[in-house]
């Protein structure tokens, strides 16, 4: 079984930033998963045990004083060192803002090829084949690398956690990161998860609001329905641009791409850029007062009506069914 590196993002204080179980499981399906973390000296031991519980067979801990002060370069150096240490055939990196920076550097550093934004991975003989969802899910494309090292950015939330708990072999190395060609981090403001709602891209149900909500104080209706359904809150670009909700809730071409079991669009017309971010949802519900809104073309259940009268009734109806 070839060794597959999985980069695991950690905060400045060495805590896991997201659940890497999905990526570790993806690696386990194609080889032996090796978790790689880059942390400040002395803070790696705590995560190693957790990573084993999530299925890592090996944990490679690169300790660097600049782990939290240089942008992407210590992490890329750690992965390059781990790739050599484990003779890895592929490196999986979650496609977050930081992850993509690390992947970009690593591709150039290793002379590797990139398989970008994979939503599935499989082994085909010696080759690794990645599946990509292109143009908002309009196409499914499979790609591979015939020869040479492979770096894969994996779409966050796309992989299920399936691995059994392992007792990992741990290796800790001191990493001497060269900061001469790196951006320097001056300060970080970590946003604590303030809501108990599920994370947008991983949620089974997403309720999104758009221009039809009309005002910032009315957007609360979206949140009320989301809470009634245990859903994440999304938004169209119009709602984000209007300042009704922060941009990390934007669903669409330029925001997050979601693929939930149920997507409910409230007061969203369904511009093609919005549909590109949600049309792979299993079931789509749309409520909009404009009967000609293009969102109805992709909706499994559409209601031509006023969100301010339909949604409160829907919340009551959901409550009575639970």
């Amino acid at each position: 079984m070839p060794n597959i590196l999985v980069f695991v993002e950690t905060s400045a204080s060495g805590e896991l930033r997201s659940n890497p179980a999905g990526a570790l499981s993806a690696a386990a399906a194609i080889g032996t998963p090796v978790a790689v973390v880059t942390v400040s000296p002395g803070s790696g031991a705590a995560v190693a045990d957790t990573l084993g519980k999530l299925g890592a067979a090996h944990v490679f801990i690169a300790e660097s004083a600049s782990a939290a002060t240089l942008l992407a370069t210590p992490q890329a150096a750690a992965l390059a060192a781990a790739a050599a240490e484990y003779d890895a055939s592929a490196v999986l990196i979650e496609g977050t803002t930081d992850g993509r920076d690390i992947a970009g550097r690593l591709v150039a550093r290793l002379g590797a090829a990139l398989l970008a934004d994979a939503v599935a991975l499989k082994r085909d003989g010696d080759r690794l084949v990645a599946t990509h969802s292109v143009f908002g899910g309009a196409y499914t494309v499979e790609s591979t690398v015939e020869d040479g090292p492979v770096v894969v950015t994996v779409r966050p939330g796309a992989f299920e956690a399936t691995s059994a708990t392992a007792t990992p072999a741990i290796k800790t190395v001191a990493l001497d990161a060269d900061g001469s060609a790196s951006a320097v981090i001056d300060s970080v403001v970590e946003e604590k998860a303030v809501s108990s709602r599920p994370e947008l891209r991983e949620a089974k149900t997403v309720v999104s609001g758009g221009r039809g909500l009309g005002a910032a104080d009315k957007f609360v209706l979206v949140e009320q329905l989301a809470d009634a359904l245990g859903a994440a809150v999304g938004a169209s670009r119009a709602a984000v641009d209007a300042g009704w909700i922060p941009s990390n809730h934007q669903v669409g071409q330029t925001g997050t791409t979601v693929s939930p079991d149920l997507y409910i669009a409230l007061g969203i017309s369904g511009a093609i850029q919005h549909r590109a971010g949600m049309q792979t949802a299993k079931t789509i519900v749309a409520i909009n007062k404009d009967a000609d809104a293009p969102i109805f073309d992709v909706a499994d259940f559409g209601i031509v009506g006023d969100v301010f009268s339909v949604v409160p009734q829907l919340i009551d109806a959901v409550a009575s069914k639970n």
Binding site: R17, T96, T97, A183, I185, V188, V189, E191, N248
Partner: peptide, 10 residues
């Protein structure tokens, strides 16, 4: 980023 805001320079 997905986890907050980072002020950086180069």
């Amino acid at each position: 980023t997905e986890y907050g805001t980072v002020t950086a320079r180069a």
